[in-house]
Design a protein around this nucleic acid. Structure first.
Lengths: 166, 166
DNA sequence: ACTGAAAGACACAGACT
DNA sequence: AGTCTGTGTCTTTCAGT
């Protein structure tokens, strides 16, 4: 007799995330410092399986990081800028060199390779306009392979979340 | 006699962050589940002041959240899209209505009010192109005040961090 | 603002179902 | 895959410097 149909599961990377895992993730997303005991109370399970499931998700890379989010305006990073960059040259080595520059600059908190007229989109956090100008002229445009750069200034944050599991 | 000059401190919101606070933040940013004891060992302080400083920073809003970051590709959110929106009408009420829509849509993880030809920049996470198309047509463009919408697709994540304190 | 101590709560591993 | 139980460790508060 054929095996019964499996329960519906996320199986993208060979790792199955079931509903209990999702319930744990939901709670952890909103508060990384929640205790295992509190999670187990809320999802009606004892601490052992919760503990094991969290470890499994950490090892599988489902949980990437437990991060503390700091208010940027309170740590002298008042200015947020979206910065578009196109490269002059698109060889593999030129790309690697650019990526290393991106990684080395702490002002850049995010960088994506994008479709459209520009090659990359950067999110840059700076103390103020002077600091951003210094970043633009002396750090980013210093790289010879950087062609066009366009800056879009963020005037207000309407929404900012990292919650992916609902 | 005049009071002595204060030590150099962050004093933007009337809340002073000193070097010890910054050292605590540095550790917490990279691992929100680090124990207070481990922090106190690393910065050579007993647990009591570390505990008090963390509580103070939580209450002052310097620490916004302890977040668990989940790998988007492992929870069926493989597609990241940067989405630009301009509104037809810019009255206060129309703006509030749009912001409520933004807040209600879980696909939108970030939204910024920006300078330039568009009014807002959105970061949208979707399972795939079909799901994004559904979001675009049936959820975002459904709002009558939404004018132009332009989508830029993220092909690769080069850097993604939330670390502001170095 | 800090140290040290002490009570209670929690993490984590083991035996078992 | 889960419960229960025990041990060591951590959190959190309080007295004292």
């Amino acid at each position: 007799m054929a095996k019964a149909v499996k329960k519906e599961q996320s199986t993208i990377t060979g790792f199955n995330i079931d509903d209990k895992d999702l319930a744990i993730l939901k709670l952890l997303q909103h508060n990384a410092r929640i205790t295992v005991k509190e999670i187990s109370d809320k999802i009606h399970l004892s601490t052992t399986p919760v503990h094991e499931r969290i470890k499994r998700m950490e090892e599988a890379g489902v949980i990437k990081q437990y991060a503390t989010l700091v208010d940027h305006s309170k740590v002298k990073k008042g200015l947020m800028v979206i910065c578009y960059v196109s490269l002059r040259q698109h060889s593999k080595n030129a790309g690697i060199k650019f990526i290393k520059l991106i990684q080395s600059l702490p002002e850049i908190t995010e960088c994506y390779s994008i479709s459209g007229e520009f090659d990359f989109m950067l999110k840059v956090m700076a103390e103020n306009m002077d600091a951003y100008y210094d970043f633009h002229v002396n750090k980013l445009s210093q790289e010879e392979n950087v062609g066009h750069v366009q800056s879009v200034f963020v005037m207000g944050v309407i929404k900012q979340t990292h919650v992916l599991v609902h």
